[in-house]
Design a protein around this nucleic acid. Structure first.
Lengths: 154, 154
DNA sequence: ACTCTAACTGATACTTAGTCTCATGTCAGA
DNA sequence: TCTGACATGAGACTAAGTATCAGTTAGAGT
């Protein structure tokens, strides 16, 4: 069974209807690049209303089909997701994204809990850098940065 | 020398003018709660234009006077900042924020680098939880959550 | 196969966060 | 005190997302 069919089936199981618009949004998502905005989806799913795309995206977020990606400038993009909780490793230079699940924030959380008396319930972590192929490429001539400064991200 | 005077002095040193509007924005910030939006500042600095507040906020971000805080819903708020790179620990229940600097993400970064061939250049981490006083309070009668679900934050 | 209705839809108006433009105002160096 | 580069406020604009509402439809029940 394809990803598409699986998701469609899941929709049904959760008591949601499988409508033409939802199928079209889904197709648009599955054909989209690593990360995209709602506007990208709108253009790839002509005829589907803006509000419906937003509604569908929210539904798919709840179903863990898509997740949000925090860009360095603070804007939010979307990305297809298969697992539940995970983090992203974004290449600043080509936009490539890798997921990582084995997030060892637990040690940090334990430490923070004892230092601060907070009970930690969740976290959001995005990591930015340069992927292998971009490193290889920039090892050559000039190193042109594709995307702006890191601002308050460190 | 007060915080305010220090920042004003710093403005001058960086070649920026010390104008009435900037002073009013600064006063508004210094009087604001743990985290706030540009709209909050606008209301506390009547007479200053929207665009000017946005411009000033950007300037103060560059100067590390304020930093952005990522709320769990994905919206961005602002907060007074004194140090450079740091992270936030937000209480979901009362909105309180603590900074932490001793972020042990370095171990994670080292691990990620070797696992993924990415060269890590930056990261963004926000941690959500419940502060001590909210824990104490909710240990009593009913536990009413002030803020919604954790969604894709884990 | 037919009916019925709650769920869904697209259009559109609205909200919120932020940027851009431009004529006017003003800080601070000479 | 003059002057020009820097800064300002007003308001139009963009982008992301929400709310409303009358019309449509999936799919459960017969």
């Amino acid at each position: 069974m394809s990803d598409r069919e699986l998701i469609v089936k899941h929709l049904g199981l959760r008591g949601h209807r499988v409508t033409g618009s939802r199928r079209r949004v889904l197709d648009a998502l599955l054909a989209a690049p690593a990360h995209f905005t709602v506007d990208d989806v709108l253009q790839r799913a002509p005829g589907v209303g803006r509000a419906t795309v937003f509604r569908t995206m929210k539904l798919l977020q709840d179903m863990n089909v898509v997740c949000r990606v925090l860009m360095e400038d603070g804007s939010l993009h979307y990305r297809l997701s298969t697992t539940g909780h995970h983090h992203h490793l974004l290449c600043r230079h080509c936009g490539r994204i890798e997921d990582f699940v084995n997030c060892d924030v637990s040690a940090l959380v334990t430490e923070l809990s004892s230092n601060t008396e907070f009970e930690i319930e969740g976290h959001w972590l995005e990591v930015y850098g340069r992927c292998q192929s971009c490193r290889a490429r920039s090892a050559g001539p000039a190193d042109k940065r594709a995307i702006g400064s890191a601002a308050d991200v460190g």
